[in-house]
Nucleic acid binder design. Sequence first.
DNA 1: CGGTATCCCGTGCGATACTG
DNA 2: CAGTATCGCACGGGATACCG
Lengths: 119, 119
Amino acid sequence: MTSVCATGQHDHHDVYAQQCPCRGLLELIANKWTALAVGALAAGPQRFGALQRQLEGVSPKVLTQTLRRLEDANLISRTVYPAVPLHVEYELTEVGWSLTVPLKALRQWVEEHVDEARV
Amino acid sequence: MTSVCATGQHDHHDVYAQQCPCRGLLELIANKWTALAVGALAAGPQRFGALQRQLEGVSPKVLTQTLRRLEDANLISRTVYPAVPLHVEYELTEVGWSLTVPLKALRQWVEEHVDEARV
DNA sequence: CGGTATCCCGTGCGATACTG
DNA sequence: CAGTATCGCACGGGATACCG
């Protein structure tokens, strides 16, 4: 069994439907900036402004949406340091950090097959 | 360096922008059915109708779009057997097959962290 | 059987302006 | 500094009907 969704418990009657456990993750990292934000945070905790500069072209609204979704998914944490001016740090959680491993595998696949695959 | 996009050649000046080589792949598998179609085809060559039944809920138009994109990316091949009724087979290419490896890593991550991460 | 054509809708994304 | 508010558009996706 090598499919994305099937488990060892399943057989050829598998349905790759809405119930697939991959769906949630795929829909999360599917959007434009999420995986890139995780990649940026893999270098260490970052402030909102720093993330916005690294993810070139992202608007503050969209960056906020992206970070909120990651926070809701428990992949990053948001820490506010009450000060003037405001200081907010985003950081990968432990489980968020673990996600960088398969994500990095994906990146390596791209590097290795960028010529064969027209992605 | 553990970020999604940075390579060993890069340093802290990396920009996770539109130029990131991951972007193409992420935008490809980002949509609703692509990764699932790859997963289905990992079980072996499939006909259009069989894919449509496995990817429960997909409309013929969207399935066609999905398969065309995968074909354009050189990840699957489309073979027409001229007969009545028509017989069309979709099959993973070699590079398409190689993609199932990191995709499977992603699935395993989901299974292992489904409780910690609310994806 | 394996699609295309057509219509429609939700939402992800972007630009800009403004605020605690 | 770190967002929110508002507007608008493009596009992915869905339903249905039809075609070679």
